[in-house]
Amino acid sequence: MEDIDLEEEDNLNIAVLSGKGGTGKTTISTNLALALGAKYIDCDVEEPNGFLFLKPNIVNTEEVMVEYPVIDEDKCTDCGVCVDVCQFNALASAGNGILLFEKLCHGCGACEIVCKYGALGYGKREVGRIEKGMGHGINCSRGILNIGEPMAVPVIRSILRNLDDGLNIIDCPPGTSCNVVTSLRYADGAILVTEPTKFGLHDLERAVELVDMFSIPFGVIINKDDGRENIVKSYCKDRQIEIIGTVPYSDSIALAYSKGEMLYATQDNRALFDHLAMGLGEVLEWT
C-alpha cells in the first residue's frame, strides 16, 4: 500500500477506527467533526448510525452501481467454462443454461475473459447509495449498503474516492476486516477508539497492527475512561503510541447517546471535544 503524499492532496482524511463495535466510535467521530468544523463521512455502511445524531437534511443521493455479467443466450453454448473460473460461485450450470447469482458476483471480469463465444457482457446494478446533507452546520455524507447485499467494499470505495477538499472525519466500520482495510487505503491519519479494559486492549492491539501496515500517523482516544492509570495507558506508553485524549465514563453521556443527542450541544462536553480536537492536531502534526 503506498503512502499518500500530502503535498499532492487537497484533503486530509482522518479515519476513526475501533477494534470492536460499541466502543463509541460514532459518538467520537460525529462530535469531533463538529469540534473541528470538518466534514463527517460515515463509512460504516452496514450500520451507518452517525446520521441518527447529526440529523442532516439530505439534499443529494447518489446510487452506487456495480457490474455484473449478462449472458447472451443466443451466443451461449452452455459449455460451463465461465462456471469453472468463477471463484465466487456466482455462476452455475443447471444443464439447461447458465444461471447467475448476482449478489455473489464481485464484478471481476474473469468469466468474460474465458468465454470463447463472446456471450458475456456487463450490466450495472445498484448495491447501495450515498447520501449527503448539512447537519449541525457541517457537511455530512454516508454510504448505505442495501439490505441483503453482502459486499460493502464497493460502497465504501465509492464514497471515499470522491471526497471533497478539506478535513474529512471518516467513521469506519468496526473490526479489522476488509471493509476497514478499504477505508484505510484513503486515510492520511487515524484515530483508534478504545475502552480501558482487557477487551478494549486486545482489540486495540489488532487495530494498531492494521494501521501500522499503512504507515500513517495515528493516536488513541480512550472512551469510558475512569481517570486512573490503566492497561491501555500503559500499553500506549510501552509502544510509544500517543494518546489524543480521553472521554470520561458518564451516565449523562450514555443517556444522551440512547436518545440520539449530540454531546457537542452541551457546554461541558463541548469543552471536552474542543480539547480532543486540539490533541488530534498535535498528534497528527498538521498545521
Binding site: M1, V85, Q87, F88, H106, C108, G109, A110, I113, C178, V181, R185, M213
Partner: peptide, 9 residues
Amino acid sequence: PLACEGCGA
C-alpha cells in the same frame, strides 16, 4: 494481498 479479492482474472 490486502486489496486482492482472489478472483483469478
